[in-house]
Every structure is written in C-alpha cells, then in structure tokens.
Measured scan of single mutants.
Amino acid sequence: MAAAAAAGAGPEMVRGQVFDVGPRYTNLSYIGEGAYGMVCSAYDNVNKVRVAIKKISPFEHQTYCQRTLREIKILLRFRHENIIGINDIIRAPTIEQMKDVYIVQDLMETDLYKLLKTQHLSNDHICYFLYQILRGLKYIHSANVLHRDLKPSNLLLNTTCDLKICDFGLARVADPDHDHTGFLTEYVATRWYRAPEIMLNSKGYTKSIDIWSVGCILAEMLSNRPIFPGKHYLDQLNHILGILGSPSQEDLNCIINLKARNYLLSLPHKNKVPWNRLFPNADSKALDLLDKMLTFNPHKRIEVEQALAHPYLEQYYDPSDEPIAEAPFKFDMELDDLPKEKLKELIFEETARFQPGYRS
C-alpha cells in the first residue's frame, strides 16, 4: 500500500510507478496490472468513496492506442447498470505532455475469474450472474457493438453480487458484411471463450460470437473449470467437437473457408456428449439454455433477447427493466489503419471533457 500523499506533496508512487492523480484522489492501494497499465484503488475526496484507477501508458504502440481509444469512446457513450462506466479521466493539459491516461471507475471487490478459483456457486448465484451478463449484453448488442472478449476476468463483482462487464478494448461495431482481413492475426481474445466460426472463417462476425462466450462462462460457473481449455488453435476446435459432436452437413455448409471445411470433413465422426453427463448436478433449465448458447452453427445460436426470456431466468426476466441503447454506435473511421500519432490526438480530444474549465 502506498503511503497517503500529504496535501501538495506531488504524485504518489505505487510499486515504483508514478500515479499522478492528486489532489482529488489519494490513499492509493495496488490492485493489479494488465498488459499496459496498473490498477489501484484510491480515495475520492470529492465523492467520499474509494474508486478504481487504471493507469494506461499506450502511446508507444499502435495496438494499445487503438484499444484505449475504443474503450474510452464506447464506455463514455454507454450507460447501463451492468456495464462499468467511466467516472473521470485524468491526463496532462497538453498533448505533448500526455504520456499516461488515468481512467477512474467504480471500485468492484472482485471478478468472476477470482471468485470461481475459490468458491463453488449455488444455482441461485449462477442464475443471477447469468441474468446480469445477458442484461448488459442486450444493451451492448442493441448499440450494434460486439464485445468480443467476454470471459470471467472481464466480469466485475461486488459483495452485493452486482455484476458489471468491463474491458471493451477489443470491441467492434457489428459488421457481418465487412471482410476484416487479418482478423485472426489481430484477434487476441482469450482462445477458450472463442466461437468456432472465428477459427473457421475470417469473413465478418456477428453478435452470436458473444453468446458463445457467455455459454462458455455459464459452463464454467457450473463446474469451476473452463469447458474448452484448448492449448492452441486446432486443439481448441477438437475440444469443442469432442463435446458438441461432429457438425451436420448443414452446419458445414455455413463454413465459407474450404480449407477449414475440408479439415472438419477429414475428422472421424464424434457423438455429442449429453450435458447432464458433463454437469450431473446442474439445473435442467440451465443445461437447456447452455445447449442453445453453445450451438456450433452461429445462425442457430440463441440471441440475447431470447436467452433473457428463457425459463431458467424467469424469476428475473423483465423486458421493461432491460434497457437498450438510445442509438446504434458508430465509429467515424476504422481505427485499425491509423498511425499511433493520430490515435493519440483522438484520445486527447475524447478525454477533453474531463479537463478543468472544459467548454463543449
């Protein structure tokens, strides 16, 4: 834990890192770190609560700039109880001085990944967590956004079992017609939660990839272990087919990539493993919904509104309290091709509203 900075004593240090967030945020305490930044909790002297502050230093890398800009653009436009918001952003007053960006968010005690390492969940908890994931996802999908990296560590939890989806750095506007060349190379989302079509096709992607990830998360809540822990690309596919069985001819016809289709045709026939054999203690309604989410063919996979209306979630289902976005989200430009200098300018502009004396 960093010592509390005395008023006016300059930035606090946390594990050798400068955290320049005073005077409003003090009493910093280390939480963890990701690929390009550290997260601390801090005391907000204005709202009198502890908050989470993520320090991001992305400006050396085009990919990190892209992810940072995506996350900020999306989260500043989203407003939903099951999606983490941005409360404040701290950065230098000029673009030349801006080396880091500090993002202030609600402090959540833990995440689903940490929880599943230590606790076996009751059916009631599984049901409530799944409902909140789908409630947040309904809003995301209504904005025409794909999260693309749903996994237990991106689901934040607090002691009252509130759940918030975080990390929109890989999110995209849904565009089933656009052929994202190089899709697989830039697709760094965790393999275990990846839909089979991501490994088999490169053309376009749809909201059904997020539903697949939610199915993987439900299976993990039922058993405290990942359902498809593939060691590499082909191993991942083999794990999936080992449980779902061989795809039907109709399902194979959806695979545009001939090499991928021929690979699947070359494999020995596998039978589907019954879900109640894998999860003998699970609620039968939970397994019915799991089956509809972990469907090989993305066109037959359940959609988020149908999933919310499934009998497993009937005690929570309330369409009048499951809000959607006001308007579909649009990125003005494809960020993939922009140089990091341009992305830095866009991050600077996007964060201006939090600067003292800002006038829109």
Score class of each variant (00 low, 15 high):
residue 294 L to M: 12
residue 360 S to W: 03
residue 63 T to A: 12
residue 314 E to N: 02
residue 108 M to Y: 12
residue 203 K to N: 14
residue 188 V to H: 02
residue 213 S to D: 07
residue 228 F to P: 00
residue 149 D to L: 03
residue 229 P to E: 04
residue 181 T to V: 10
residue 220 E to L: 06
residue 94 T to V: 09
residue 64 Y to I: 15
residue 231 K to T: 09
residue 89 I to F: 13
residue 167 D to R: 02
residue 329 F to H: 12
residue 270 K to F: 10
residue 142 S to R: 01
residue 103 I to Y: 06
residue 72 I to L: 13
residue 18 V to Y: 00
residue 77 R to W: 11
residue 277 R to M: 07
residue 185 T to P: 15
residue 26 T to G: 03
residue 298 P to E: 10
residue 254 C to Y: 13
residue 306 Q to W: 04
residue 15 R to P: 15
residue 236 Q to K: 12
residue 148 R to H: 07
residue 29 S to V: 04
residue 222 L to D: 05
residue 277 R to D: 10
residue 309 A to H: 01
residue 55 K to D: 09
residue 54 K to Q: 06
residue 359 R to H: 03
residue 52 A to E: 02
residue 161 C to G: 00
residue 36 Y to H: 15
residue 174 A to W: 08
residue 322 E to L: 01
residue 315 Q to M: 00
residue 114 K to M: 01
residue 137 L to H: 07
residue 121 L to C: 10
residue 294 L to N: 05
residue 276 N to I: 15
residue 332 D to K: 05
residue 72 I to H: 06
residue 98 M to W: 14
residue 59 F to H: 13
residue 236 Q to A: 06
residue 104 V to Q: 10
residue 178 H to P: 12
residue 228 F to R: 01
residue 192 W to M: 09
residue 133 I to Y: 05
residue 185 T to F: 06
residue 280 P to L: 10
residue 92 A to S: 14
residue 350 E to I: 00
residue 198 I to H: 06
residue 293 M to H: 02
residue 275 W to A: 03
residue 170 L to C: 03
residue 228 F to C: 01
residue 132 Q to K: 13
residue 252 L to E: 08
residue 8 G to S: 07
residue 311 P to V: 03
residue 291 D to K: 07
residue 352 A to C: 07
residue 258 L to V: 12
residue 227 I to P: 02
residue 238 N to F: 12
residue 69 L to S: 11
residue 99 K to W: 01
residue 352 A to N: 10
residue 281 N to Q: 10
residue 4 A to Y: 01
residue 127 C to V: 09
residue 303 E to S: 07
residue 80 H to G: 04
residue 226 P to R: 05
residue 109 E to Y: 03
residue 28 L to N: 05
residue 130 L to Y: 02
residue 53 I to S: 13
residue 344 K to Q: 02
residue 86 I to M: 05
residue 262 N to P: 03
residue 244 L to H: 11
residue 95 I to C: 09
residue 87 N to Y: 15
residue 277 R to P: 07
residue 30 Y to R: 06
residue 280 P to R: 11
residue 216 C to T: 05
residue 280 P to D: 06
residue 24 R to C: 10
residue 106 D to W: 02
residue 346 L to G: 11
residue 28 L to P: 05
residue 9 A to N: 05
residue 224 N to L: 07
residue 326 E to Q: 12
residue 284 S to W: 09
residue 43 Y to F: 14
residue 153 S to D: 11
residue 120 H to M: 11
residue 91 R to G: 12
residue 142 S to V: 06
residue 343 L to H: 11
residue 357 G to I: 10
residue 307 A to M: 08
residue 312 Y to D: 03
residue 300 K to P: 02
residue 201 N to D: 03
residue 312 Y to C: 00
residue 90 I to H: 01
residue 89 I to N: 13
residue 5 A to L: 14
residue 244 L to N: 01
residue 198 I to F: 15
residue 92 A to N: 01
residue 241 L to Q: 00
residue 132 Q to I: 06
residue 240 I to P: 04
residue 287 L to E: 08
residue 287 L to Y: 13
residue 219 A to F: 11
residue 45 N to F: 11
residue 93 P to F: 01
residue 296 F to P: 01
residue 243 I to D: 02
residue 200 L to V: 11
residue 48 K to R: 14
residue 353 R to H: 09
residue 40 C to P: 15
residue 142 S to N: 02
residue 220 E to R: 03
residue 47 N to D: 14
residue 165 I to L: 06
residue 101 V to G: 11
residue 62 Q to V: 09
residue 182 G to D: 00
residue 255 I to V: 01
residue 235 D to C: 09
residue 3 A to C: 09
residue 119 Q to L: 13
residue 279 F to W: 06
residue 155 L to C: 04
residue 154 N to R: 08
residue 296 F to K: 02
residue 116 L to P: 07
residue 331 F to N: 12
residue 279 F to T: 01
residue 142 S to K: 07
residue 174 A to F: 06
residue 55 K to S: 13
residue 169 G to T: 02
residue 12 E to V: 13
residue 11 P to D: 09
residue 235 D to S: 02
residue 151 K to W: 09
residue 135 R to Y: 01
residue 250 E to M: 08
residue 206 T to K: 08
residue 64 Y to S: 15
residue 107 L to S: 01
residue 308 L to S: 00
residue 259 K to E: 00
residue 16 G to E: 12
residue 34 G to D: 01
residue 112 L to M: 15
residue 221 M to H: 04
residue 94 T to P: 13
residue 128 Y to M: 05
residue 64 Y to L: 15
residue 251 D to G: 06
residue 102 Y to A: 07
residue 60 E to M: 14
residue 195 A to I: 00
residue 253 N to D: 00
residue 197 E to M: 01
residue 163 L to H: 02
residue 289 L to D: 01
residue 20 D to S: 08
residue 342 K to F: 01
residue 157 L to A: 04
residue 344 K to C: 01
residue 13 M to R: 13
residue 331 F to R: 02
residue 351 T to P: 12
residue 41 S to F: 13
residue 184 L to W: 12
residue 220 E to M: 06
residue 254 C to T: 04
residue 55 K to T: 08
residue 83 I to K: 02
residue 213 S to A: 07
residue 229 P to G: 09
residue 318 D to H: 06
residue 346 L to A: 10
residue 197 E to L: 07
residue 47 N to C: 12
residue 259 K to C: 03
residue 4 A to L: 10
residue 88 D to A: 08
residue 32 G to P: 15
residue 154 N to W: 03
residue 204 G to Y: 03
residue 181 T to F: 05
residue 360 S to G: 11
residue 242 G to P: 05
residue 196 P to I: 01
residue 193 Y to V: 11
residue 309 A to M: 08
residue 154 N to A: 06
residue 269 H to Y: 10
residue 74 I to V: 08
residue 109 E to M: 06
residue 83 I to S: 02
residue 296 F to I: 14
residue 318 D to R: 02
residue 201 N to G: 04
residue 146 L to Y: 05
residue 328 P to A: 11
residue 273 V to D: 02
residue 265 L to W: 01
residue 281 N to V: 08
residue 86 I to C: 05
residue 202 S to I: 13
residue 212 W to S: 07
residue 209 I to S: 10
residue 75 L to V: 12
residue 25 Y to T: 00
residue 141 H to S: 12
